[in-house]
Design a protein around this nucleic acid. Sequence first.
DNA 1: TGTTTCTTTACATCTTTTTTACACTCTTTT
DNA 2: AAAAGAGTGTAAAAAAGATGTAAAGAAACA
Lengths: 226, 226
Amino acid sequence: MKNDSRILIVDDEISIRNLLRMNLLNAHYEICEASSGQDGLDKAASFHPHLIILDLGLPDLEGFEVLKKLRLWTTVPVIILTVSDDEPTKVRLLDAGADDYLTKPFGPEELLARVRVALRHKGMVEATPIFESGNLKVDLNKREVFVSETQVKLTNTEYEVLSRLVRDHGKVVSQAQLLKQVWGAIAKDQSHYLRIYINQLRKKIELNPSEPTHIITEPGVGYRLI
Amino acid sequence: MKNDSRILIVDDEISIRNLLRMNLLNAHYEICEASSGQDGLDKAASFHPHLIILDLGLPDLEGFEVLKKLRLWTTVPVIILTVSDDEPTKVRLLDAGADDYLTKPFGPEELLARVRVALRHKGMVEATPIFESGNLKVDLNKREVFVSETQVKLTNTEYEVLSRLVRDHGKVVSQAQLLKQVWGAIAKDQSHYLRIYINQLRKKIELNPSEPTHIITEPGVGYRLI
DNA sequence: TGTTTCTTTACATCTTTTTTACACTCTTTT
DNA sequence: AAAAGAGTGTAAAAAAGATGTAAAGAAACA
């Protein structure tokens, strides 16, 4: 049995990380770990987790700040871990976009159950990991792209851009979102990267790159995959 | 302020129902109550709630059974209330489709926060903020505008103006408000911008731009979307 | 070393926004 | 009732800005 959900653990205490890792690996999740807030933010961008488990007691950034920064560009489910059972804190975090809140000590079975609930929610919006429209097919699991049954080879960056569009197909994805997700927080105002890669993608997946039917630009906003 | 989410409370204890009702009504939710499991199932079908708060200690049916029967036909979020903090029970219920689990006694603020989280999840899958009136349809999530089923392409500024009107549809939005929201605080007295963009919008979304039926001018005040 | 990919640079092209100009419709004033 | 003025509608230009494209240099990889 394989479970292809990726989970990011953000916690500075090694003992807790060990406990979480053991339980989650045992349940066949793919794990990535970060030991500080900044590290968590970076890994969230590079690892593309389906769920984040975030401990509040971090050394550099407040867990609350990490959550706020995450919510600027992603809606990935976040489960908060904490020792404090303080109600105002809970409310603040839940309203800031957290999906669940667990007070230590917690039973591992309950954690796993709440992980399943969070992933179930995500499943509702994500549905199928295969996107198909016209002659274009993108398999996010296998990392494969086809145009009219013929496989197309994409570079890493090209694929990152495309997969970001696929994940929100139909909707406009803003330039800021794309840049942040693919090149990281540094490249906020370097939209020319984007133009170049959108251009290369179009050359590879559009029948007529100058009259795109899949990757539509929304001037002043971003791009949209249809 | 109005909050149009409907919440069904299923609980046999009147005191708890009173407490929940008070807090939820105060937060402007629409409430429906059931005092037994069977009653709850019936009301869930007739009332079409956006969220169900289900107490486990029911006289006729086990709360667990109610949840299982609900899940046969609906995915409406369910928050479980209980006195028992028993982990296996939690896991069983969460895996049976419950979305959250609160142990009594709980703070009212936390309950409300978890209600908001559950409704937020629901918002992800459906209930997208779509404005529809006559032949005009505006999807604020996808940033799409349709006139008689045909998609209309709007520039960024045009869309900003329209979405501002949509958000307060029915009401008059003053020129000052529109200018401030779209062009920023600088452009307070440059109402000609507005006239030009209202004009362009009408050309795009009105059947007869000179006799607008959607974007109505309120002379001396501002504009109104109907 | 050769190949691939990523980044940088440069410029052409297109769209959108702003500016400018004028016509229209009311209401108020004479 | 005609004239004036304020607010509004419309059409076109000029200006600004965003996007598309090609190609060369730098970095990574084998």
